[in-house]
């Protein structure tokens, strides 16, 4: 896949996941925990493209989410960038087409995004924040699996 088509495909996936997040995110909230569908798509994407190319996709996801969640555009953008980049670093170390690895990447992406978000925008009740972040990470982990199938088709492994 050429760099240009990878860029278009990845960006389209991030934007589609964001729209799904906006439409279904609040509808599938369970026990007060809302999954981050954008991150669920970003994690397998980052693992497929590697750290260098994952960072801009993370920035795109963060800016789009931040534009709709006004008070923290900068924190959202930076936290998603770092999260995507860190997950992208695992590209060469793991067989990223395995469903368990994808799920773990989703969990890691959500934890990293929330941890780095906290570093830039500290919250008033850290205990509650951590509890919710862990719940969200588990939920995001589950949702990362179907996105892994889409990513596998978009970015087939080179022989």
């Amino acid at each position: 896949m050429s760099a240009a088509s990878a860029c278009v495909g990845g960006s389209a996936l991030v934007l589609a996941a964001f729209v799904l997040d906006m439409v279904f995110g609040s509808r599938i909230t369970a026990w007060g925990i809302r999954p981050d569908i954008t991150l669920a798509a970003l994690a397998p994407l980052a693992m497929a493209v590697g750290a260098g190319r994952a960072a801009p996709f993370g920035l795109l996801a963060g800016v789009v989410q931040g534009a709709f969640l006004s008070p923290a555009l900068g924190s959202m953008a930076v936290s998603r960038t770092i999260s995507a980049w860190a997950v992208g670093l695992l590209e060469a170390r793991f067989y990223h087409e395995h469903v368990v690895v994808t799920a773990a990447a989703g969990f890691l992406a959500a934890v990293l995004a929330d941890a780095s978000f906290y570093a830039f925008a500290p919250q008033e009740r850290p205990g509650l924040y951590v509890a919710r972040a862990l719940g969200r990470a588990v939920y995001t982990m589950l949702l990362a699996m179907p996105f892994a199938v889409v990513v596998r088709r978009l970015f087939p492994r080179r022989p």
Partner: peptide, 25 residues
């Protein structure tokens, strides 16, 4: 460098956008 440079650029861009956004709001 190929791994580090993009993330640094993106973090700088994200921070700049955040500051610009806050000032505009």
């Amino acid at each position: 460098w190929r791994r580090i440079v993009p993330v640094v650029i993106c973090v700088v861009l994200g921070t700049g956008l955040g500051i610009w956004h806050k000032a505009a709001v």
